[in-house]
Design a protein around this nucleic acid. Sequence first.
DNA 1: ATTGAGCGT
Length: 135
Amino acid sequence: MALRAAVAAPRGLRRLFSTSPFSSSLNPPQRPQAEPSTNLFVSGLSKRTTDETLRDTFSAFGEVVHAKIVKHRESGYSKGFGFVKYATLEAAGKAIEGMDGKFLDGWVIFVEYAKPRQPPTLPSQNNTNFQYGRQ
DNA sequence: ATTGAGCGT
């Protein structure tokens, strides 16, 4: 299964295979490291991995402010990826170095900086503000 | 209701 996960690996693995002479400056990777953030995107998770497991695993690298597995709203069924937010950028960096490409619940996971979830929006009438992408 | 690309109810 680790093999399957490795094959299904998202672009997180590309830097592990960045030995191509063409991937230096002539052919830059489409998605280099996202801009550093305290917020991390974690993919490749087992569908049985929970928020607790995520939080517990990543708290080894620093103070985890928020850890969440993305799942369907009603069914609660995991989508297989999640987000971890640290108190500091250094902790986030250490978590990437320490957990990217490693195993969790039998699956190879990939850790990278998360994209900001939503642009600054008008503080209008019915705004349920979930904003984890801010530092 | 375990099994797969991806960025959140």
